[in-house]
Nucleic acid binder design. Structure first.
Lengths: 243, 243
DNA sequence: CGCACCTTTGAAGGCCGTCAATCAAAGTGG
DNA sequence: CCACTTTGATTGACGGCCTTCAAAGGTGCG
């Protein structure tokens, strides 16, 4: 399954990880030795569109996105697919797997761009988690956050129009990236194709295109060549809430 | 907030709880004394339509549904509401709150029927949970199950038609009730009004009505006077998957 | 019996989907 | 460096699923 990947020696020590405090496996502030650096198997690269985890299969690895984007999704028998969430640099790809031995993945994961992923055996991640109550609490917080994102998506899909859903998604990703210093002045790298936007917000690619167009004509966003710019955060937020 | 409720002395000992093994607070099989029985404050009754928890407010109590139905929902500023899930007898109303002190409720909860609820202080429930690794694991499993239900709902709302969504919901509740011995021969008490069905599956009450009608005309269900009967589980399941 | 609350039904319209064609951008090989 | 291909964005026409508005019909309860 992973034969199309390339694993390289870790280019950096974990203690010098550029993701800094935005990643779960950051070293403790105190004198604890850098355990993860010893355990991890290297950093693995994948091309865009590669399957990183398959729905139903047992999870044995803990994967942290070091660079690039991925998405979690479920696929129906006839091919329809629903994207549950996007993962951006620093995100743990399946945080809840750390709580259950022999956990069966409840969704699949695909790379959206070229990605590099920091992989360590799930057992080691579980052991690391259990070593410190704070780290365990961080895992629980991650899971609670995932649940909060799912609830928002449910409300979006159930109660909001196309304009509202797309606006919500753009804002959510903007805020997540901003909290990791990955956006500036409302501008950020947004490598999501309209087909995947459609699968995320429960619309067709054609209608996502028209919806983006409406947002552009309202002068709320500029979006071209994977570069998203939010021109009016307040008004975009208002539309995201009202529509 | 709870001034419209009536609290009565526990009518039964926890060790004789009719919910038996279908409730998280069941006594351990081994010789451990019945701790919950000491801590709980009694069983509280609420009329239909009462608010049991308010989105955003800090959770201080652990509530288990002893009888009746409730639903978890989020409400938007303009009044639109999306139901996230239903709670049936035996369900813990907000399992994830046991993991976070001073947890702010991410959704509101309302009684759907007249309900009786077994309430104990959240701190006691947390202490009880931490006492035994198995019980803590049960809590984690509950939360994982809630997450799985949310994922299915996301797929329903994003990718399925009205017929598929309604079928999915009926089947989900049927299976949940069956696992608690609360349904027999495809027949069960279903006290959900069409307005709430609509809020659960992201449709309007009018269209839910028409959709139920289509299911009846296909001879897949009978539904009258809060009594739901599934006439053809296989075919209903097929439609739930395909539509 | 009368009122409140649902459910059911009809008609009209809009949001979004489907199908299809065109266009733009980014490779690819010569 | 330029045909050629591939992939994704864009646009138009049309249709359908679902919404909205309104009214009528049931059901339970005081």
């Amino acid at each position: 399954m992973f034969d199309e990947s390339i694993t390289v020696r870790p280019p950096v020590e974990c203690t010098a990880c550029r993701l800094g405090r935005h990643v779960i496996c950051r070293p403790n502030g105190n004198a604890e030795p850098d355990e993860i650096n010893v355990r991890r198997q290297g950093i693995t690269m994948f091309d865009p569109g590669k399957l990183l985890a398959r729905q139903g299969e047992t999870v044995t690895q803990s994967m942290t996105l070091y660079s690039g984007w991925a998405y979690r999704f479920r696929q129906l028998a006839d091919g329809r697919r629903q994207i549950l969430s996007f993962a951006v640099p620093g995100d743990l790809l399946m945080p809840e797997s750390a709580f259950f031995p022999d956990y069966a993945a409840p969704y699949s994961i695909k790379s959206l761009t070229r990605v590099s992923i920091c992989i360590i055996p799930l057992k080691d991640m579980m052991a690391l988690m259990h070593r410190s109550p704070e780290r365990e609490h961080q895992f629980k917080s991650l899971i609670a956050h995932e649940a909060a994102v799912m609830r928002r998506l449910i409300v979006d899909l159930g109660k909001r129009s196309a304009l509202g859903r797309v606006s919500q998604l753009i804002l959510e990703l903007y805020h997540r990236l901003a909290s990791k210093q990955l956006s500036a002045k409302g501008q950020f790298h947004f490598p999501v194709r309209q087909e995947q936007l459609a699968d995320a917000v429960g619309l067709t690619p054609v209608y996502v295109n028209r919806t983006l167009d409406r947002l552009r004509q309202k002068n709320l966003i500029a979006f071209d060549r994977q570069r998203m710019t939010i021109l009016d955060v307040e008004e975009l937020h208002a539309i995201a809430e009202e529509e």
